[in-house]
């Protein structure tokens, strides 16, 4: 299980830019994610403006649950940055603890989401019922997938961090998590407030 069983190449230890390799890779990852979300949200915005009649569908989204999930994600972002703060102070145990809080946030988000979706699907608002709902489920679904993946990666990193290992990864995964949070910050008004 230990990752030191896989010694890293010298290449990984170099840092000509001054940014550590893992962090640099996450910046590039975020750059490539910007255009993925940009594609789906851009398509949604264009359709939404071109189709005023979608407002009658949008009014069925649950603003309260959306707002609650925003609070959940903002708070999980806080604990992610607190984990980074702890990692900076070389406190692996504390960093791991905060990461688990973030994971709890991710789990809460997904549970609320599935509750919300079950409710909507039972009300007949399925992904095929209207193209507004197609966009709704696709955009939120892609975002939810990122939440899920982020949670899993954070669990792996938290286990290592608790042992004081690879603490620099705490910051890297935190950056990814803040990005996922920012995407939701924009999804919230797009899907839950513009009615």
């Amino acid at each position: 299980m230990s990752s030191s069983a896989f010694p890293r190449p010298i290449a990984t230890t170099r840092s000509a830019t001054g940014i550590s390799t893992g962090k640099l890779a996450v910046w590039w990852l975020i750059a490539s994610e910007i255009v993925i979300f940009g594609g789906v949200l851009g398509s949604y915005i264009m359709h939404r403006i071109g189709h005023p009649e979608w407002a009658s569908q949008a009014e069925h989204t649950n603003t309260w649950l959306g707002a609650f999930n925003t609070i959940v994600l903002l708070s999980s972002s806080l604990s992610a940055v607190l984990a980074h703060n702890a990692a900076e102070m070389k406190d692996g145990k504390k960093a791991a603890k905060f990461l688990w809080f973030t994971i709890l946030g991710a789990a809460t988000f997904l549970v609320v989401k599935s509750f919300e979706w079950t409710h909507e699907i039972n009300a007949g608002l399925t992904i095929t019922s209207h193209t507004f709902w197609s966009f709704y489920y696709t955009a939120a679904g892609i975002h939810g997938l990122h939440v899920l993946v982020g949670g899993i990666i954070m669990a792996v990193i938290a286990v290592d961090a608790a042992k004081g290992k690879d603490l620099q990864r705490v910051e890297a995964v935190g950056l990814y998590w803040h990005f996922v949070d920012i995407v939701w910050i924009f999804l919230f008004p797009l899907l839950y407030i513009s009615k």
Binding site: W27, A31, F179
Partner: peptide, 30 residues
């Protein structure tokens, strides 16, 4: 979030420009 949680403002400048470029490409697309 970007300034205080991600610390992008004190990161190397080109990272911020990279993200702005990506956003600009999305504007071009739209």
């Amino acid at each position: 979030v970007i300034k205080h949680f991600m610390h992008l403002t004190i990161e190397k400048k080109y990272v911020g420009f990279l993200f702005l470029t990506m956003l600009a490409f999305m504007l071009v697309f739209v």
